[in-house]
Nucleic acid binder design. Structure first.
Length: 934
RNA sequence: GCCGGAGUGGCGGAAUGGCAGACGCGGCGGACUCAAAAUCCGUUGCCCGUAAGGGCGUGUGGGUUCAAGUCCCACCUCCGGCACCA
């Protein structure tokens, strides 16, 4: 009667843990501390997905394991609850985002509790909680109050920013403006990705393929006042300090590529005054030699950035971005119409449209020339949209012979290809493209230099002449931090108004004591036709405030969703602290995070942004460590069930997959109508017809989404947990399999029957369970299992740990007498994986709950070794037999035992042994003298 | 195009350079049952052979080694990411 019933025991133990606060974490660790963190979810309306419990189960197992080993474990959960979907839902239905968000959080909470995760629910938080928003805004004010000191490579208080004397002389307003220009949080009038359909501006990384990542709406570039975070100031540290982190090498590389550090040189080209004689250049050059290279170029020069200053003698034109500030002044009357048309077309294209369409390079000649600083020859200036305004100086020199983009550009417009670098191993062919390092040719005094030496020398010479300087650039851009949205954190910033109600340009921070700046009540969430944020339609009593006799208008932009997720791992440590964003002692005791598990989709942005904020807070003395996440692991994606797809022709018959045309329609084929033939799957009834076999990403449209609620209903939470861990390596992409879940459920059923009498009417011990002393064999089996599981959990190798536990159960099942002394330790090590079942079995065994806090069993080493071992014996590398030898047998003994085996002896008769390889404890291999033939 | 990752039975997968295929699913056979389900036991890489045994096997082709799924070189396929950053 009492079969294993997850639906009965799982809620029972969840309630028990809740009532006893079993997983409450102390404020400070008692001894060893372990911080296991999940990437908290966005509480979407769809509820939990089977992908969520994968990482969550992994950290839960490690957390439970560490707890049982006496470690103080921090294992919290919360919700990344600001975000577009709630706002879009509000726009569609009129429901305030807070309502739908709270509802979704309730669903997520129910589902997470249903899976038996050992979170300390006392620490739960949502980024939308006013108290959380308060500290997010406070951190923004820290960024606002910080400038980056390049000399010390550290963020420092803005009050410590040295003010140049001429700025001081210009008055208080000038000083304030100077400070504003140097803050880590600053405003900028920048070309941004405006998405009319979403009514918002998007970050570069939210624009994919020229359309919005969310929804796929078109995006155009317009200039707009924005809040930016100066993450580029930290680019170098964000790059360098990756080094010591225990992160997957691939993720580190992804971040490094995203930061995209490159070294090269900036070079100024004098814009040739129209109709002037050569004298102007000489004067300019002398002036530069005397004054040096200016920090900012005057309008009479074009400054370019190149990583290959060694190719300066191969320059055939300069190209500037359509948004470059000097386009207007460089355009001659004759070219005006063409340039204007080109610029307008470029403005309508997003960055990615440009790259996609511009396989064929486009561009327009400005009509102007600049003077080459070394050769003193005139160089034409073009405008082309393959040059990005936002990288480097927005202007480049083209060297068609040694850069593939410039090569293509030159080919399109018939520009010269001047070879100035020869490959190291062969002469250069005229007009060929060579982008590698080599030896300079045709380069005046530098001819003959190797690329590396050339770069060093020319950089020094340019710097000495005030014509250029070595420079470092990053692909990383400053972080566009404002959104024209309602459902986000308001900025704690006030804009000063003049008597007429117009902004003066002066801004001030909201006082710390006035935080949080709460969102106003709004009834209309619709974005407008203009980039004016919804908050600009807030009631006047929210929008306008007076401080010290001055009227201000609140900032109406809101922060992006990343803001809340940048620091949640800190708030978990001290979620109710009203005095500080996190208590200093608490932070010191728990940070950094020991294990952070989440999806690889956050490999770049979330992790980079978090690291940036963390470093600023560290620099400002608010944190004790420079990096937030010590060990990072990305769980793999879970795909839908394997599908077989056949193709049907319009005529109705099947078409073999490799011969299908675009008009043939795919059709799902049930697995039992398919068989494998060689490399491919074919239809069982028509083996000529190949079908495709593949697992697809889960998606609503494909209809292959697995709902955790259903899995729990049909198999139980422990089965879901165990299955997701048994599927394969945590980091691998793997397909879902319902029969796989039922297989794991079968294992839990066998665990149950090992302890419980299934035929009794009540839940009582199985009659086989006894108090016998375990046999040596049983102890060996037990301790080997404990050993394997103990080693596999920290390695996150859960699939092999589970396999070993299955072997243990298979070993015990046939036992007529099952000693408690082996069952109880087994239930203990099962507990992190299948906690509900383990608690129930523990109770049936008569032990005091909870097993979740029972001490982890100790491996007794002596049970891990055998007296004798069976070793393979090879002849010529081929397995020919096995012999049993004492465990400590030396090489001679092994060899003798092997040679004595009749089967081996047979293979050795009549042959001469060249040598014998015997590896103690492993194998014996007889190598024979090559057979001379019969 | 560039950068990652992965290719092992019918399927998911396991294997410090040392017995390839642990464990699970599926299949086959048996026990129990009037029967079925459930459960338990056995078996299951492919080929030849009644058997004993033998041969072949980790995407392909080479190489190193007494010994290669594992190391090296070249290539093929699939998955993921990036994509004019000068």
């Amino acid at each position: 009667m009492p079969r294993y019933q997850p639906s009965r025991i799982e809620p029972k133990w969840q309630a028990w843990w809740d009532a006893h606060d079993t997983f409450a974490t102390p404020r400070l660790p008692a001894d060893r501390a372990f911080y296991a963190l999940d990437m908290f979810p966005y509480p979407s309306g769809d509820g939990l997905h089977v992908g969520h419990p994968e990482g969550y189960t992994a950290t839960d197992i490690v957390s439970r394991f560490e707890r049982m080993r006496g470690t103080s474990v921090m294992h919290p959960m919360g919700f990344d609850a600001f975000g577009l979907p709630a706002e879009e839902h509000a726009i569609r239905t009129g429901t305030p985002p807070r309502e739908s968000t709270d509802r979704n959080i309730a669903t997520f909470t129910r589902q997470l509790k249903m899976l038996g995760f050992s979170y300390d629910w006392n620490r739960v938080l949502a980024t939308t909680d006013p108290e959380y928003v308060r500290w997010t805004q406070w951190i923004f004010l820290v960024l606002f109050d910080t400038w980056f000191d390049p000399a010390t490579q550290k963020g420092r208080p803005i009050a410590e920013l040295p003010i140049p004397t001429d700025v001081v002389a210009a008055g208080a307003a000038a000083v304030a403006a100077y400070r504003d220009q140097h803050r880590l949080a600053y405003q900028s009038e920048a070309p941004v990705n405006w998405c009319p359909a979403l009514g918002t501006v998007l970050a570069n990384e939210e624009v994919v393929g020229g359309v919005s990542e969310r929804g796929g709406h078109p995006v155009v570039r317009i200039p707009l006042r924005q809040w930016m975070l100066r993450i580029t100031a930290y680019a170098d540290r964000l790059d360098r300090e990756l080094e010591d982190l225990d992160w997957p090498a691939s993720i580190k590389k992804l971040q490094r590529d995203w930061i995209g550090r490159s070294t090269g040189a900036e070079v100024d080209f004098l814009i040739a005054p129209a109709g002037s004689a050569g004298g102007a250049f000489g004067a300019w050059k002398r002036a530069r030699a005397a004054a040096g290279f200016p920090a900012k170029p005057d309008t009479d020069v074009l400054r370019i950035y190149t990583t290959r200053p060694d190719t300066l003698y191969g320059v055939t034109s300069l190209v500037i971005a359509p948004e470059h500030p000097l386009v207007d002044s460089l355009t001659t009357a004759g070219q005006r119409a063409a340039i204007d048309a080109y610029r307008e077309a470029a403005a309508r294209k997003s960055d990615l449209d440009r790259t996609d369409l511009a396989r064929e390079k486009t561009g327009v000649f400005t009509g102007s020339h600049v003077i080459h600083p070394l050769t003193e020859k005139p160089v034409p200036v073009w405008v082309a949209d393959y040059v990005l305004a936002t990288y480097g100086t927005g202007a480049i020199m083209t060297v068609p012979a040694h850069d593939d983009r410039d090569f293509e550009f030159a080919r399109t417009f018939g520009l010269d290809v001047v070879t100035v670098v020869e490959p190291p191993d062969r002469p250069a062919a005229a007009g060929e493209l060579f982008t590698g390092d080599g030896v300079a040719v045709n380069s005046g005094p530098y001819t003959g230099l190797a690329t590396r030496d050339f770069i060093a020398k020319v950089s020094a010479d340019l710097a000495a002449g005030g014509l250029g300087r070595a420079a470092v650039n990053y692909k990383l851009r400053d972080w566009l931090f404002s959104r024209q949205r309602f459902w986000g954190e308001p900025f704690p910033i006030l804009h000063e108004l003049d008597a007429a109600g117009n902004p003066t340009g002066a801004i001030r921070a909201v006082a710390e004591s006035e935080l949080p700046v709460a969102l106003p009540e709004l009834t209309d969430f619709k974005p407008g036709d203009t980039p004016d944020p919804p908050l600009s339609r807030a009631p006047a009593e929210w929008l306008y405030v007076e401080r010290d006799g001055v009227r201000y208008r609140r900032e109406t932009n809101t922060m992006p969703q990343w803001a809340g997720s940048c620091w949640y791992y800190l708030r978990f440590l001290d979620p109710r602290n009203a005095e500080r964003f996190v208590g200093a002692d608490v932070e010191r005791a728990w940070m950094p995070v020991d294990l952070y598990v989440g999806g690889a989709e956050h490999a770049v942005l979330h992790l980079l942004y978090s690291r940036f904020w963390h470093k600023v807070l560290y620099d400002r003395g608010h944190l004790s460590c420079p990096e937030p996440f010590g060990r990072l692991v990305n769980q793999g994606m879970i795909l839908g069930e394997m599908e077989f797809t056949g193709y049907r022709a319009a005529t109705g018959g099947w078409v073999s997959a490799e011969k299908r045309g675009p008009e043939d329609v795919p059709a799902k084929v049930p697995a039992d109508q398919v068989e494998k033939q060689g490399e491919h799957f074919v239809l069982r009834d028509a083996p000529k017809i190949r079908v495709e076999s593949r697992a697809y990403k889960m998606s609503k449209s494909r209809g292959n989404v697995v709902n955790p609620d259903h899995v729990v209903r049909d198999f139980g939470a422990d089965s879901l947990r165990l299955y997701e861990m048994f599927m394969g390596p945590l980091e691998a992409t793997k397909p879902w399999s319902t029969t796989g879940v039922s297989g794991v459920r079968g294992f839990l059923d066998r665990c149950w029957r090992l302890v419980v009498d299934e035929r009794a009417d009540d839940i009582v011990l199985a009659p086989q369970v006894c108090d016998d002393l375990p046999t040596d064999e049983q102890l060996r089996e037990l301790h080997r299992t404990i050993d394997k599981v103990t080693r596999d959990i920290p390695a996150l190798s859960f699939n092999t740990a589970i396999a070993r536990m299955m072997e243990f159960v298979n070993f015990c099942t046939p036992l007529e007498r099952r000693p408690r002394a082996i069952l109880e330790p087994f239930v203990t090590i099962l507990a992190p994986f299948a906690p509900h079942l383990a608690e129930e079995l523990w109770e049936v065994l008569g032990r005091p709950a909870p097993v979740s806090l029972a001490p982890w069993p100790v491996v007794e080493e002596r049970w891990l070794t055998d007296d004798t071992i069976e070793i393979p014996v090879q002849v010529q590398g081929k397995l020919r037999g096995r012999v049993v030898v004492p465990a400590g047998a030396d090489v001679e003994a092994m060899q003798a035992a092997a040679a004595a085996d009749p089967r081996i002896a047979e293979h050795l008769t009549g042959r001469r042994i060249a040598k014998v390889v015997a590896v103690p404890g492993r194998l014996v291999n007889f190598v024979l003298v090559a057979d001379a033939g019969p």
